[in-house]
């Protein structure tokens, strides 16, 4: 995409604000709605457990009034369950808050591991999702100046597509490597091979292209690769970007 380097009406990365607003179109809104629906579903489960457990305590109190002795173990397990669910609720709300604030600054310098961590947590609210393992690069923080919200959308959809076919018992390994001094590579090992024919669809392609993100598949290795520019300014190298190993070496050295 054509991204001017300078201008008066720019936000981080030298991207015109008007362009950024255009990216947040229907596709982004649909993603935002989908994720929020999954979060609300998870919160409803938490509320339902608290509701039923407090109801149980009420029933036990009522029975005690009628002369039935109370079972202390039942009281303990019920109160513990309520405390655990409240903590679970707080954790969900924290993730919802992170996600909601990801649209605050359309283009910003972000740690890609933070993005992957949020996607891992959000996808965990889907009933069909499996486990995601994240692998960081030792001693390097993979910073990129990008649109975190759209990048999240692309990565989230890749995860969802894979798990929709493989199911809850499966595992995806996500790691970040550097291809050169202008691009980070996010690798999805264990990506469902069936999805290579349908992912990315036109919608995801549009979103990825809007922030200069590339998507490649390696069918033999069951691996999806997402290339994220270190900067959206013509993919130029950023000051302080780490020294990158050659592409083949970085792949060969993977555990």
């Amino acid at each position: 995409m054509d991204v001017p380097a300078t201008g008066n009406d720019v936000k981080g990365g030298g991207v015109p604000m008007d362009n950024v607003k255009e990216w947040f179109g229907y596709d982004s809104l649909a993603f935002f709605g989908k994720v929020n629906a999954s979060i609300s579903h998870e919160l409803k489960n938490v509320m339902a457990i608290i509701s039923e457990t407090t109801g149980l305590l009420g029933d036990l109190s009522e029975m005690a009034r009628g002369g039935t002795p109370l079972d202390p173990d039942m009281l303990t397990s019920s109160t513990e369950s309520i405390i655990e669910e409240i903590q679970r609720g707080f954790t969900i709300i924290r993730q919802m808050n992170r996600f909601s604030h990801s649209v605050d600054t359309p283009v910003v310098s972000v740690d890609l591991m933070e993005i992957l961590d949020l996607v891992r947590n959000l996808s965990g609210y889907l009933s069909f999702a499996g486990k995601i393992s994240l692998h960081a690069i030792d001693g390097v923080t993979p910073m990129a100046t990008t649109c975190p919200f759209i990048l999240q959308a692309v990565i989230y959809q890749a995860v969802v597509c894979s798990f929709q076919n493989t199911g809850p018992g499966t595992k995806l390994e996500l790691s970040i490597l550097s291809q050169n001094n202008s691009t980070w590579r996010i690798l999805f090992d264990g990506f469902c091979p069936k999805e290579f024919d349908v992912f990315p669809d036109d919608r995801i392609k549009r979103m990825a292209a809007s922030i200069g993100v590339s998507i490649h598949s390696d069918r033999e290795a069951n691996r999806l690769e997402i290339g994220v520019p270190v900067s959206m300014e013509g993919l130029a190298a950023q000051p302080g970007a780490p020294e990158m190993p050659a592409e083949e070496d970085s792949l060969r050295n993977r555990p």
Binding site: A48, I49, E52, G55, S78, S81
Partner: peptide
Amino acid sequence: EVKFLTAVADR
């Protein structure tokens, strides 16, 4: 949701 299941079953 095992906790939900247990609480409803108990009630």
